[in-house]
């Protein structure tokens, strides 16, 4: 409780706030250096009366802190506003750059999702190359399907240069029936893995059709745009299984993708922002 050179610091408790003040140096008798608590708080109280605006007084410290807090809040607010504006700009910039080929990230959901997305890929020309497939690390079936799909394609299309394709594995963001809290944690984890991957690949286009695994990938792709690194076009195709309602991933990506394609007219009516091309798988 005692400072150097006979200065005493006093702690004044007022409700939950604790204020530190410095009293003027006493006239130097060693006996004064030992201060006891009740007297200190009295001294502290008096010093506030005597030097209401002196540097180091509680009011001054409080107002300095307030200024800091306010300017920090203002800075954080400005960053948020900036990011939201960037997000808006990124999502609304639909200027099409003419190109002859483009790199593609395909999120292979699992099971039926992988089958569906591969059927969509079948119709795409070989200009969509290289193809980067992202799949959950527990998903062996998808890896098999992708390899046999690419093999088929290469055999059929021997005239063109062999297209390159890569498999990337990330942690699965949500196992079926996983609790919501652990979903949040594992989604953050897969976000942590997705961003460096997307940053490295820097695709022109992300194509996905659910389930949850694709959300961190799309957010990472969006971040590339927000940070001004690259504008990635995000296309989400809702599964043919969804007739009446969008899936959770669909509901999230309706706002975060450039185009959300639905395959049933009822969905188009419900979500006018979506694109309906008929049944495409």
């Amino acid at each position: 409780m005692s400072g150097s050179r006979g200065e005493c610091t006093a702690e004044v408790h007022r409700g939950r706030r604790s204020l530190w003040t410095v009293t003027p140096p006493p006239r130097s008798s060693p006996a004064h250096r030992r201060c006891d608590a009740p007297r200190l708080s009295l001294l502290g109280a008096r010093s506030r009366e005597l030097y209401p605006l002196a540097p180091g007084s509680s009011t001054h410290a409080f107002s300095v802190r307030m200024v800091w807090v306010l300017s920090l809040a203002a800075a954080a607010g400005a960053v948020v506003v900036f990011l939201v504006l960037r997000l808006w700009v990124v999502l609304h910039s639909r200027g099409v750059t003419p190109r002859e080929s483009l790199s593609l990230v395909v999120v292979a959901g699992s099971g039926g999702h992988t089958t569906e997305i591969l059927r969509l890929l079948e119709s795409l020309s070989s200009a969509y190359s290289p193809r980067h497939y992202i799949l959950a690390d527990t998903d062996e079936m998808s890896a098999k399907k992708i390899n046999s799909f690419e093999l088929d394609r290469a055999n059929r299309d021997s005239s063109t240069m062999r297209t390159r394709y890569y498999l990337h594995r990330i942690p699965r963001s949500r196992e079926v029936q996983q609790s919501w809290l652990s979903t949040v944690i594992s989604t953050l984890h897969s976000m942590w893995v997705s961003f460096p991957l997307i940053y490295r690949v820097k695709p022109d286009l992300v194509l996905c059709n659910g389930p949850g695994t694709c959300v961190p990938i799309c957010i990472s792709a969006l971040l590339l745009g927000i940070l001004g690194i690259k504008k990635v076009i995000i296309v989400y195709v809702e599964s043919i299984c969804r007739v009446e309602t969008l899936s959770l991933s669909g509901k999230i990506l309706l706002h975060l993708s450039d185009y959300l394609v639905v395959q049933w007219p009822t969905l188009k009516e419900k979500y006018p922002k979506s694109v309906y091309l008929g049944r495409i798988v």
Binding site: I233, V235, V237, I280
Partner: peptide
């Protein structure tokens, strides 16, 4: 059968593929 060619035409257009 599903009309996947409609999807590829749509995609070619929105990505600006020549």
């Amino acid at each position: 059968p599903g009309q996947s060619e409609k999807f590829s035409a749509f995609l070619d257009k929105v990505v600006g593929l020549q």
